[in-house]
Computed example of a mutant assay.
Amino acid sequence: MSKKMMPTAYAPKPSMEQRDYQIHYNRDRAITQLRSRFKRHVHQHYELYFLISGNVHYHVEQRSFTLKAGDIMLIRPGQQHYAELIPSDDSYERYVLWLHPSYLEKISTASTDLQLAFNHINFHGSHLSLSSDVIVLLSNLLHHIWVQSQSQEYGADMLARSYMNELLIMVARAKLNNPLYYRPKHLNDEQLLVETLDYIHEHIHEAMTVEHMAQQLFVSRSFLSKMFTENMGISIHKYIVQKKLHLAKRELLSGQSTHSICEQFSFGDYSTFYRAFQREFGMSPRVYVQAMKEDEEADYEAEMRK
């Protein structure tokens, strides 16, 4: 049995850099002061969020989910999300597990794809409400991963990864055994919207057109465009561009050149990327990177003065 380790209070989480995974275990009591600190964001890794306690509305893209203790949120790279805290007497306690897509590919086998837990995620599949016995099992596995990831004992790294495999398999089974997440195609506009968003997320690095997307989803271009705009309040084209730009920002901060980013997200040429970036964020890519560096330096100097 692993030793008991205490959760830490919330603090801005460091980026994953080249790490395969990263786990955080946080508990906060000053909920009122904490509420404004959670902002809508995106990242390039998978996230598994497990709520232990607290009154939380969790937002993914344009949908909101009211969570209860033991609920899980599964976030894919590129999905905008954040937790909204509602004032209550409960502490806010949760696990947050980050996983690089390349890591999940590496540890999967031909017959067991460990990315399955995050595949077919739509507005329903992002949120899992589990039975009490599964909640206990997953809570224990997350605790074991947390403890072993902090340990220097012999074999701790292998144990952490072993527990991680078990966790991902159990979450995938929970989804596979629940028909809510695998309904027939195109029952209504909501299901078509779900499939459209899934298609965009899976092909975000490609040069997508509404015409091609409509062909893949077996609907007319005009119907797809109208349905998407009515439900999302934004055109498909603008949504795709915004999604690409938010992911491109991450790549800029990681040191990627604008030329490689243009190729990676199929912007066509630099001038197209530059104009889109300027419109969306009010500054050029170069100015944005410089501003972020200056903010980091200012934060570092402020920390050193403490």
Rank of each mutant, 00 (worst) to 15 (best):
E280F: 00
Q22F: 11
F123N: 11
H259F: 12
Y300W: 11
E294K: 15
A110Q: 14
S257P: 01
V56Y: 01
L217E: 04
K13Y: 11
N140K: 13
A214V: 11
K4V: 13
E296M: 12
Q264Y: 10
T32V: 07
L192V: 15
S139G: 14
E301F: 11
T196D: 01
M292D: 00
V96N: 13
E195P: 06
E47A: 14
S108M: 09
M16H: 01
Q148C: 12
R29H: 14
Y288W: 13
S129V: 11
E296P: 00
L217S: 04
R19K: 13
L48T: 05
P12S: 06
N188G: 07
F281W: 04
K4M: 10
L180I: 14
L142C: 15
A207V: 00
N188K: 02
N231Q: 13
A83Q: 08
M16K: 05
Q44I: 01
W146R: 01
E251N: 06
S53H: 03
A9C: 09
Q22N: 10
M73C: 10
S284F: 11
P7D: 08
R279I: 00
V194I: 06
N165P: 00
M208R: 05
L99W: 06
Y103S: 02
Q152T: 11
Y103C: 08
E195I: 02
I75A: 01
E211H: 08
M5K: 14
T209F: 03
F228C: 02
E230K: 14
Q191L: 12
M73Q: 15
P14A: 10
L99V: 09
F118Y: 11
H41W: 01
Y300H: 09
H212F: 09
Y49R: 03
V147R: 07
M227R: 08
K244A: 05
K249T: 05
L34M: 11
Y274I: 00
Q150S: 08
E84P: 03
F118H: 08
L245T: 02
S162C: 05
S91H: 14
L253M: 13
E303G: 03
R37M: 09
L142D: 03
V219F: 06
F223W: 06
H81P: 11
I23W: 09
K306I: 07
K106R: 14
I234N: 02
S36L: 06
L224G: 01
V60W: 03
D133S: 11
P179G: 06
P285S: 07
H100F: 01
H100V: 00
I23T: 07
P87H: 01
I107Q: 05
G70H: 07
K39M: 05
T209A: 05
Q278W: 03
V219I: 12
S88K: 12
E61K: 10
N140P: 02
M73P: 03
V241M: 08
Y163A: 15
V171D: 02
E17Y: 10
L51F: 11
A174W: 02
K185H: 07
R275T: 09
S260A: 11
M283S: 12
M208F: 01
N231H: 13
S15M: 07
F277D: 04
V194E: 13
L247G: 02
E294R: 15
S126N: 12
Q152P: 00
I72P: 00
V210W: 00
L193V: 08
N140T: 10
G125K: 04
V194T: 08
L99N: 09
